[in-house]
Design a protein around this nucleic acid. Structure first.
Ligand SMILES: [Mn+2]
Ligand SMILES: [Mn+2]
Ligand SMILES: [Mn+2]
Ligand SMILES: [Mn+2]
Lengths: 151, 151
DNA sequence: TCCAAAACTTAGCCTAGGCTATAGAGTGAT
DNA sequence: ATCACTCTATAGCCTAGGCTAAGTTTTGGA
C-alpha cells in the first residue's frame, strides 16, 4: 500500500488547453443533439413533435424553444411546419440516430457498472455529450465482456 | 436473442424535464469547478497561480480569465492579489478538493474500464461535471471490486 | 360557422462566457 | 534608478441560451 504517491506533475499547457477547448466544443453541440434526439423520439412515439411539447420536456419556455429551433433550422438540422410540428432534415435525422445510439450505450454501460436505471438515465443525459469515440468504444467492449460473462 | 425489443416509452414530461434542468445546472457550475481545481493545482505545483497561466492552461484569452475571476470572486471562491496571483477562499479550497477527488476518481474509473490514460484524462475533464453522487459511488465500488480482483 | 383555446411568434431583457484591442501598473534585471 | 517586459484591467463587441409578457394565427369542437 503506497501512501504519499509521487505528486502527478501538471500536464503541459498545450495539452491541458486542448482538453478544455474540446470540452467547450462538446458543450456547444449538446443542445442540438438533445433537441434532435427528442424530436425523433416524439415523432416515433407520438407521430408528431410540437414545439410546446419540446418546451415541456426540455423544461424550458416556449420562447426558448422557438429561439433554439431557429438556430437548428439555420444549421440545417430541423424544418418547421407551423401548427403541424417539427421535422428533421437528413442531417438532423442522422445526428438524432447517432445521438440516440450513444445515449443508449451510455445508459446500458452505467447500469452494467452498477448504477440504478433511473440515475443512469438522468446522468446519461449529461455524460453522453462528453464521451469521446474512444470512450464509447471502451464502454461497448466492456458491455460485450460483461454480457459474455453474465448472460 | 431478442430482436425487435418493445419500444421504450417516453419518460414522463416532468421526469424528462427534470433531467435536462439538472444537466443545465451542472453545466453552469463546471467552469467554476475547473478554475478552482486548476488554481489549486498551480498553487501546489508552482507555488503561485497567475491569471496569465490560467489563460494558457484553459485555452482562453486573458480577458476571459479576468471576467471569470471577477465572477468567482463575486461568488466567494477566489481572492486576487494583483501581480501576486490568485488564491482560494475557504469555500474555494473546499470546492477544489472535491473537484480534484472527483476528477481523479473518474480518471481511474475510465482507465479501469479499458480507456487509455491520455483519453481518460481528456474525457474526464468533461464527464466529471455530469456524474451524480450515485454514479461516483458506483464508480468507486467498481474500482474496489476491480482492484480486489487484479491487484 | 364561429370563436375560445392552443400553438406559435415577437419584442425586449438578462447572464455566462467567449473575443480583440488597448491602456495601465508593477517588477526585476541591469 | 531605469525601463523593458510582463501582468492586469478595461472597453466594446459577439453568440448561446435563458426569461417574461404580449401579440397573432390556426384549429377544432360546439
Ligand atoms: Mn443529453
Ligand atoms: Mn440524450
Ligand atoms: Mn472539468
Ligand atoms: Mn477537472
Amino acid at each position: 500500500m503506497r501512501r504519499n504517491a509521487v505528486l502527478k506533475p501538471l500536464p503541459s499547457e498545450d495539452d491541458q488547453a486542448a482538453r478544455f477547448v474540446r470540452q467547450r466544443e462538446a458543450d456547444r453541440t449538446a443542445v442540438a443533439e438533445d433537441y434532435v434526439e427528442l424530436i425523433a423520439d416524439l415523432l416515433r412515439a407520438e407521430g408528431e413533435a410540437r414545439a410546446v411539447d419540446l418546451a415541456r420536456r426540455m423544461g424550458v419556455s416556449q420562447a426558448t424553444v422557438a429561439n433554439t429551433i431557429t438556430r437548428l433550422q439555420r444549421d440545417g438540422l430541423v424544418e418547421t411546419r407551423p401548427y403541424r410540428g417539427l421535422f428533421l432534415t437528413e442531417a438532423g435525422a442522422e445526428l438524432a440516430t447517432r445521438a440516440k445510439a450513444r445515449h443508449e450505450l451510455v445508459v446500458r454501460f452505467l447500469i452494467a457498472v452498477g448504477l440504478d436505471a433511473e440515475t443512469a438515465e438522468a446522468d446519461a443525459e449529461g455524460l453522453e455529450h462528453h464521451a469521446s469515440e474512444k470512450a464509447l468504444a471502451a464502454f461497448a467492449r466492456f458491455l460485450d465482456a460483461h454480457n459474455g460473462k453474465r448472460r
